[in-house]
Structure formats: C-alpha cells, structure tokens
C-alpha cells in the first residue's frame, strides 16, 4: 500500500484535484444557469417556460453517463476537438443546472406572494425586495438541497471516467493498468470520495448554523 501511494499517489491526487475542480466549477456554472432557468420556469412567457421545463425534465430523467457520452459525440460530430476535462465540466454544468433550476424554483415558490406585496407596498424596489425579503427566506430552503446536489455531483462525476475525463475514477483505472492492485486502488479511490462528500456535508452544516449573516443590518 505504501509503495502504491508513494509511486502512484501523484496520479491519484491529480485525479482527486480534477474531480474537485470539475464538480465545483460545473456546480458554480450550473447554479448560475439554473437560476436563469428557474426564472423561466416561473415565467408567464409560454414558450420560454416550455423550453425551460423540457430542458429540466430531459436532464433529470436520463442517466448522467448517457448525457456525457452524447455531449462527447456531439462535439465529435461538430468536429470540435475540446479538452475532455472541459467537456466533463460542461457536462456537470448542464446536469446541475437542471437540478438547481428545480431547487431554486421550489425556493421561490416557498416565499408567498404576500411577502412580495408587503415589500412593494413599502416602496421597496425589485433589487432590495430580492435581497432583503426573498433571499433570506429562500436560502434556508435552497441551501440544504443544493448541498445534497453537490454531494451527488461528487459521486456522479465518477461516470466521467467512462468518457476518458482524467478525474479521480479515471486515475484509478490508470493506476490499476500499471499495478494490477485492483482492490487496493479502488479502496483508496472510494475513501477519497468519502472524504470529499463528508467535507462538503460538514462545510454545509457550518454554513446553515449561522444563517444570521443573511439578515440585513445584523
């Protein structure tokens, strides 16, 4: 085991770091995209609403691996030679956007129209209405759900090994072809995923405990 880590630890660590970068980067882009989608999901514009709804259902009801493979194939058909890591990042962004859209939509729906009217009647403009009234009531709902999504992404990202994205699981495959230490390598890889997901959960707990930073003027 010590031999394994001293000789191949760098490969595994590089894969681990790429998994963190792909997941956090993809999640960040997906969250922004998801927020836009959420606004379309509650929009009264029928066409935009339908497009957003179709996107969300398409992504949420098909396997991530298939989506990733289709994305690679699509870039292939378009004769675009992109770095596999970049395509992996896009795949995660596309996937997380659909889930974030639903999470944010649910959060928006959890704040009643009365709250918005209460704010408007006090001459609070749209930006302050969102910052002072909607966001502090939205986040306690959105935050735990998005942490769950982030944890899921950490695990689902392993499928990207199937399309040769050099993330953690892929690095495991690489090391196994060189060492044939199948059990040991997967045990190390599994432990690293566990550490990653537990860290995400622990960070989220701390964030949730101190939600008071959301309250204006405190």
């Amino acid at each position: 085991m010590i031999d394994l880590l001293s000789n191949y630890g760098v490969i595994i660590l590089r894969g681990f770091l790429w998994t963190i970068i792909l997941v956090t980067g993809g999640f960040a882009i997906g969250s922004v995209f998801g927020a836009v989608l959420a606004i379309l999901l509650v929009s009264k514009q029928k066409l935009l609403n339908w497009l957003a709804r179709s996107y969300v259902e398409l992504i949420r009801n098909t396997p991530f691996l298939i989506q990733a493979m289709l994305l690679f194939a699509l870039f292939g058909i378009m004769r675009m030679r992109l770095e596999p890591l970049l395509v992996g990042l896009i795949a995660i962004a596309i996937y997380s956007a659909a889930y974030m859209a639903e999470i944010i939509r649910g959060g928006l729906a959890s704040v009643s129209d009365g709250q918005r009217e209460g704010a408007r009647a006090l001459a609070i403009g749209p930006f302050l209405e969102f910052r002072l009234i909607i966001l502090p009531q939205l986040l306690p709902f959105v935050l735990p759900a998005s942490v769950n999504l982030l944890a899921t992404l950490c695990k689902e990202s392993a499928f990207l090994a199937g399309v040769s994205v050099a993330e953690l699981t892929f690095s495991g495959q690489v090391v196994i072809t060189q060492t044939f230490l199948v059990f040991e390598v997967w045990a190390v890889i599994g432990a690293l995923y566990l550490v990653l997901v537990l860290s995400v959960m622990a960070a989220a707990k701390r964030l949730e405990k101190k939600m008071t930073w959301l309250i204006p003027g405190r």
């Binding site: 209460g118 009647a121 006090l122 001459a123 609070i124 009234i133 309250i215 204006p216 003027g217």
Partner: peptide, 27 residues
C-alpha cells in the same frame, strides 16, 4: 401610501422591530 393586508404579510425572518425599521432604513 401605507397598506395593511388581510394576511398581515409581516416578514417572518425579521423581528417586529426590524419589520418596522426595514423600509425607513432602506427606502
């Protein structure tokens, strides 16, 4: 123009005092 609603529409994440100071301070 102030408005009082059927369902009060107070802001549940703010104290009574903060409900009253929010608009004067921010608006």
């Amino acid at each position: 123009v102030g408005m009082v609603f059927q369902h009060f529409n107070l802001f549940p994440h703010l104290t009574i005092l903060e409900n009253c100071t929010l608009a004067p301070m921010w608006v």
